[in-house]
Simulated assay, not measured.
Amino acid sequence: MDDAGIYTRESEYLDCYVQLGLASDRVLAVSFPEESDDEDADHALLDRIDAYLEGEREEFDDVAVALTVPTDQREVLETTREVPYGEQVSVERLTRMTPGLDASSDEDHDAVRTALAANPAPLVIPDHRVRDGPSGAPPEIEQRLRALEGL
């Protein structure tokens, strides 16, 4: 059976809700609404997110994400998933790490920033580990995730 739907759970650490949009057992989106009419959902990925937000080391690298973004952005976001827990990279470094991009190109740096800002699944795709790039998460959420990992 496909795991599809919207699952929401309150996070005390983030002071908001964590909301997952799933289809065919893949994450479509992660968002952080301040309010929710839904009761806390029972979902294994939300359990893992709770453990992560309580300080457990978690990479989420095994979580399938359905990236419905242009191919060049997909490459950047897939590369972002390779940045390990507790480590950070610069936009320049992420550009260098991404196949087909040139770290000396301002245009490619802009492409990386555009992809990070469009990230549909922050936290699962850890754009908070890119120290000088934008995030798909609200700034206060990004800062809490960075603090959690000691960044």
Score class of each variant (00 low, 15 high):
residue 141 I to D: 02
residue 85 Y to W: 14
residue 95 T to D: 05
residue 37 D to E: 14
residue 80 T to D: 08
residue 33 P to H: 06
residue 121 A to F: 06
residue 126 P to N: 09
residue 110 D to S: 10
residue 139 P to H: 11
residue 122 P to A: 05
residue 23 A to M: 05
residue 83 V to Y: 00
residue 33 P to F: 11
residue 26 R to G: 05
residue 12 E to I: 13
residue 3 D to T: 12
residue 21 G to H: 08
residue 133 G to E: 04
residue 12 E to W: 08
residue 29 A to K: 12
residue 101 L to P: 00
residue 108 D to Y: 04
residue 41 A to I: 02
residue 85 Y to A: 04
residue 89 V to H: 02
residue 74 R to D: 11
residue 29 A to Y: 02
residue 146 R to G: 02
residue 122 P to F: 00
residue 29 A to C: 07
residue 143 Q to E: 14
residue 25 D to W: 14
residue 19 Q to V: 05
residue 9 R to Q: 05
residue 90 S to V: 00
residue 2 D to P: 14
residue 19 Q to P: 02
residue 28 L to P: 00
residue 124 V to S: 01
residue 69 V to W: 10
residue 138 P to A: 13
residue 142 E to W: 09
residue 66 A to P: 05
residue 66 A to M: 02
residue 125 I to Q: 01
residue 72 D to I: 01
residue 83 V to L: 05
residue 22 L to I: 10
residue 31 S to G: 12
residue 103 A to G: 10
residue 46 L to Q: 11
residue 69 V to C: 04
residue 98 T to Y: 01
residue 24 S to R: 15
residue 144 R to A: 03
residue 69 V to K: 06
residue 102 D to S: 06
residue 91 V to G: 00
residue 86 G to D: 08
residue 123 L to N: 10
residue 140 E to Q: 11
residue 62 D to G: 14
residue 71 T to H: 12
residue 133 G to F: 00
residue 21 G to E: 14
residue 128 H to V: 01
residue 128 H to P: 04
residue 105 S to N: 01
